[in-house]
Computed example of a mutant assay.
Amino acid sequence: MNIPSALGVACAAMAFGIATPAAAHDTAETVTPNFRHVIPNIPGKSLIAVVVDYAPGAASVAHKHAASAFIYAYVVSGDIESQVDDGPKRVYHVGESFFEEPGAVHRISRNASDSRPAKLLAVFVTDSDDKALTTPLK
Score class of each variant (00 low, 15 high):
M1P: 01
M1Y: 00
N2A: 09
N2V: 08
N2Y: 05
I3D: 03
P4Q: 05
S5A: 05
S5H: 04
S5P: 02
G8V: 05
G8C: 06
A10S: 15
A10I: 14
C11E: 00
A12Q: 01
A12Y: 02
A12V: 01
A12W: 02
A13R: 05
F16M: 00
I18D: 02
A19L: 00
A23N: 04
A24G: 13
A24H: 13
H25M: 11
T27R: 15
A28G: 14
E29P: 03
T30S: 00
T30E: 01
T30V: 02
V31L: 03
V31E: 00
T32L: 00
T32E: 01
P33C: 02
P33Y: 00
P33S: 02
R36C: 01
R36M: 03
R36Q: 04
V38Q: 09
P40K: 10
N41A: 00
G44H: 11
G44D: 07
L47R: 08
L47I: 12
I48R: 11
I48E: 12
A49P: 07
V51F: 06
V52L: 03
V52M: 00
D53C: 08
D53A: 10
Y54N: 02
A55C: 07
A55T: 07
P56E: 06
P56V: 05
A58I: 09
S60K: 06
V61D: 09
A62Y: 09
A62D: 05
H63I: 06
A66P: 11
A66V: 08
A67Y: 05
S68A: 14
S68Q: 13
S68D: 13
F70R: 11
I71A: 14
A73R: 11
V76A: 10
S77Q: 13
S77T: 15
G78E: 09
G78T: 13
I80N: 09
E81R: 15
S82E: 10
Q83A: 02
Q83V: 00
V84Y: 11
V84A: 07
D86R: 04
G87R: 05
R90V: 14
R90Q: 15
Y92R: 15
Y92W: 15
Y92F: 15
H93L: 14
V94G: 06
V94T: 13
G95S: 11
G95H: 12
G95N: 12
S97I: 10
S97W: 11
F98D: 11
F98I: 09
F98A: 08
F99G: 04
P102K: 13
P102V: 12
G103I: 02
A104I: 07
V105L: 07
H106Y: 02
R107E: 14
R107D: 12
I108N: 06
I108V: 14
N111C: 14
N111W: 11
S113R: 07
S115M: 06
P117N: 04
A118N: 12
A118R: 13
K119C: 09
L120G: 04
L120I: 04
L121M: 15
A122E: 06
V123N: 12
V123M: 14
F124D: 00
F124G: 01
V125I: 10
V125L: 11
V125P: 03
T126M: 06
D127T: 13
D127E: 15
S128G: 01
S128E: 04
K131H: 05
K131V: 13
A132G: 02
A132E: 04
L133E: 04
T135L: 05
T135I: 05
L137G: 01
